[in-house]
Amino acid sequence: MARVVVQEAPFDTAAELARLTAGRTDVGGIGLFLGVVRDAAGGRPITAMTLEHYPGMTERALSAIAAEAEARWPLLGCTLIHRVGRLVPGEPIVLVATASAHRAAALDSCAFLIDWLKTKAPFWKREEFRDGGAAWVAARAEDDAAAARWLAPRRAAAE
């Protein structure tokens, strides 16, 4: 059962990793993705970004994505934390951590989770620019392509 959290407050990455393996010795590796707010968008400096989300559906979507990862890989633990509200460059925004007996499952499931989260969880970013103004971030085709590469992961194994 994954740990799914949506919060405004910062999270403690070290504490989250400790929690993933607490009380067990069968974990052989943890895959970790830590997303950080970047200080520019397309070369244009930004001073802050605000994350809006759909309370209720967000948790539901994240849990569904985590359940998909747990169905595809032998995970021993899974944590998804996404921050909302106003964040400034340098601040951590999203944490994905997966624990498994071996590294391939941990790393692959971690990559899967962040790719799917970016295209299937209802969050929206609004960037504030240093030169004034603000704009909602448009979805990127590269993110759709990154998510699409996980659509048929079992085909190779089945052939």
Binding site: L51, M57, H82, V94, L117, K120, A121, W124, A138, A139
Partner: peptide, 26 residues
Amino acid sequence: NQDFAGPETPIAPGDEVAFFPPVTGG
């Protein structure tokens, strides 16, 4: 009702229907 839907998805009284841009989290 908090599941992604398309233009053909049926709706009924009492439903919760949300509209938004393509998502940009992560």
